[in-house]
């Protein structure tokens, strides 16, 4: 499967040096710029929607990670085995939080204290809360309360 690429790479490592060594400083600069960008995104208080901000900083982080992996870890110059090892790992690593999120992050049940929250109490509470403050951000559960 990997005959062409990997055999060649291993033998050619010596020849690689010249053009491998070159971009390190450039990559370094890029990484620094990325870091500053993501720090700025937070510090400047741009009043962006938080979801967008999270998206931006995570994209920046991913870009940084890609550069580190490709150049510092020399993955750009490796054989195809890199995909066999890293792609399934990446898929697993991404899939696990997603799978957990559907249960741990999204509740169809109530996370509040079990002993203080009998069903009856909760209904009474919900009515009271509905009167008091309808769309308070700290009450994500409220909207799921109906499913009980």
């Amino acid at each position: 499967m990997f005959r062409r690429k990997c055999g060649a790479t291993y033998l050619m490592t010596d020849e690689h040096h010249d053009h491998q060594a070159a971009p390190y400083m450039a990559i370094f600069g890029l990484l620094i710029v990325c870091t500053i960008l993501s720090a700025l995104a937070d510090v400047l208080e741009l009043n962006l929607p938080s979801a967008f901000l999270i998206f931006i900083v995570l994209v920046i982080a991913t870009i940084k990670a890609m550069f580190v992996m490709m150049f510092f870890m020399h993955l750009k110059f490796e054989g195809k085995w890199k995909y066999v090892i890293l792609l399934p790992t990446a898929v697993l690593a991404l899939a696990m939080p997603f799978a957990l999120a559907s249960d741990i992050a999204v509740h169809y049940y109530d996370v509040a204290v079990p002993q203080e929250n009998t069903l009856l109490d909760k209904e009474v509470l919900a009515e009271e809360q509905a009167d008091d403050h309808q769309s308070h951000d700290g009450h994500k559960n409220g909207e799921h309360g109906g499913s009980h």
């Binding site: 499967m1 990997f2 033998l11």
Partner: peptide, 12 residues
Amino acid sequence: MSIATPETAGAH
């Protein structure tokens, strides 16, 4: 993951 060249084997 198939066969590498004999030269590689030598290097190895």
